[in-house]
Design a protein around this nucleic acid. Structure first.
Lengths: 146, 146
DNA sequence: TTGAATTAGTTGCATAACTAACTATTATGA
DNA sequence: TCATAATAGTTAGTTATGCAACTAATTCAA
């Protein structure tokens, strides 16, 4: 019974642990080797701002799947590095809109290229069809649990 | 071009982020609701010790894919909660062997059952075949990057 | 209209991660 | 043998996460 008991635990460890941590580390390493002093968490914030600048902190929470304190502190660090600027909204003074600086805009092409390269390294020997299945499964997992 | 530029970034965010974080959070929540005061990181250590008790810290590093300082501190906390005990090896005094306490052994069945339940929640509406493909892809990703 | 509920964001506390630098022990090779 | 290298583990400093409790602004309903 114990053998069986561990079987799905193995699946758990596959889904949560190794692959995503490995990708994150490799991306961080690729950033570092390119001389970029930016964490992947910070990058994920910039990533969403490149797609749509001026998001509120709450919107960043939703899109990056983090809680509000995490966003607050990531933005504190990004502001200290002059990569974003918080601007209080005129219409609703509870809201901060977050804007990219020129420095941050300059990082877009390089870092996205590095992310693409990292994914290529990660997906060597994986077929397009299998990638599609994996994306679908992970999306379903997320939807099941969110 | 920018549309294309973001395309593989999307895959990155799918693979690294949402699904694995969602699974981890749900498992943590299920532990908490069962009254278990244990983090999923601590649980992952116990998990490997249930499979093989008395591992060295270095072995735990290899099996949990963490670095040495992380293991040191996880074990500090686990020892403080009387869940494991470090025993210096007689043969090689550099090595600590890590052993489960009875308290930790009592947690095995309950927590593995909760992990299985969590995976069932995560995998609703996902076919067995797609799960197999996903496991294979994530394993390949890990092998590509490790 | 005003008082309670909701929403946006921050702060405090605990756990965990990575890097780099450190100590102690063991292995090696000249 | 004895100095050097390699290995196991710890410590220090920074970043990030989760939860709970908090402030300030806005919404809503009696």
């Amino acid at each position: 019974m114990t053998g069986n008991q561990f079987k799905r635990g193995e699946l758990y460890s596959v889904i949560t642990g190794m692959a995503s941590i490995a990708v994150a580390r490799r991306l961080q390493k690729n950033f570092r080797q390119a001389g970029l002093e930016i964490t992947i968490e910070q990058w994920s914030i910039l990533y969403h701002l490149w797609k749509e600048d001026g998001l509120s902190q709450q919107e960043l929470c939703n899109r990056t799947f983090r809680d509000k304190p995490s966003i607050t502190r990531l933005l504190d660090n990004l502001e200290r590095q002059h990569l974003v600027k918080r601007v209080a909204s005129k219409e609703d003074r509870r809201i901060n809109r977050v804007f990219l600086t020129d420095t941050a805009r300059d990082l877009q092409d390089t870092t996205i290229q590095l992310a693409n390269q990292t994914m290529e390294e990660a997906l060597v020997e994986v077929s397009k069809a299998d990638i599609e299945v994996t994306k679908k499964v992970l999306q379903q997992v997320y939807d099941n649990l969110k």
